[in-house]
Computed example of a mutant assay.
Amino acid sequence: MPDRDAALDAIQRELTAFARRARHKAAQMHPDLSLVTYSMLDLVKERGSCRAADLAAHFMLDKSTVSRQVNALEKLGLITREPDPEDQRGQLLRPSEDGLRLLADAAERRRLAFRERFTDWTDDDIARFAGYLTRYGAGD
């Protein structure tokens, strides 16, 4: 069991370092964009549109926290709001043209960074790593 505990410690340490790097990269994309707001914008784009309550449920965040983040995205001109046709009291969030452009630029920079980081990895190594990350993420 000591080897397993050491491996689990290494996983925790590396995931923490990964999260720190991700926060730093988000700040480089836009000085007023946190990793949380970037992640929310990315999810809104992925879904085409969603409600703030959907973001709160997905990210397991308090509605007031999501409200502040959504307001920040709106002030930055990265999302728009429109009435929800299924619930006139609700609003759908959609990425704006500026938001889509920011996400596309960020995706290209990420792709280039990953290509550089994985230069010495074989295609099989990358595929296994992707599989492990997908498996880990599915465990939630």
Rank of each mutant, 00 (worst) to 15 (best):
R23V: 08
A26L: 06
A26S: 15
A27H: 13
A27C: 04
Q28R: 14
Q28M: 12
M29H: 11
P31L: 08
D32G: 06
D32L: 11
S34H: 08
V36P: 00
V36N: 08
T37F: 00
T37H: 03
T37Y: 00
Y38L: 13
M40T: 04
L41C: 04
L41R: 01
D42M: 02
D42R: 05
K45A: 14
K45E: 15
E46N: 01
R47I: 04
G48P: 02
G48A: 09
G48F: 07
S49N: 12
C50T: 12
C50H: 06
A53N: 05
A53W: 00
D54H: 07
D54Y: 02
A56D: 05
H58P: 01
H58F: 13
H58N: 12
F59N: 09
M60Y: 07
L61M: 15
L61S: 07
L61K: 15
L61T: 04
L61C: 03
D62G: 07
K63I: 10
S64T: 15
S64N: 12
V66N: 06
V66G: 08
Q69M: 11
V70S: 10
A72M: 11
A72V: 05
E74S: 14
E74N: 13
K75M: 09
K75I: 01
K75N: 13
L76K: 09
L76C: 04
G77D: 06
G77M: 01
L78P: 01
L78W: 01
T80M: 00
R81D: 02
R81P: 03
D84G: 09
D84L: 07
D84Y: 05
E86F: 07
Q88E: 09
G90L: 02
R94A: 10
R94M: 05
R94P: 01
P95S: 11
E97S: 12
D98C: 01
D98H: 03
G99I: 02
G99S: 06
R101C: 04
A104M: 04
D105S: 11
A106F: 02
A106M: 05
A106N: 04
A106H: 04
E108L: 14
R109F: 01
R109I: 06
R110P: 01
R111S: 10
R111F: 10
R111M: 08
L112V: 12
L112M: 11
A113Y: 03
A113E: 15
R115E: 14
E116C: 06
E116G: 10
E116P: 01
R117S: 15
F118I: 03
D120H: 12
W121H: 14
W121N: 08
T122D: 11
D123P: 01
D123Y: 00
D124W: 04
D125C: 02
D125S: 07
I126G: 04
R128Q: 13
F129I: 13
A130L: 13
G131R: 06
G131Y: 05
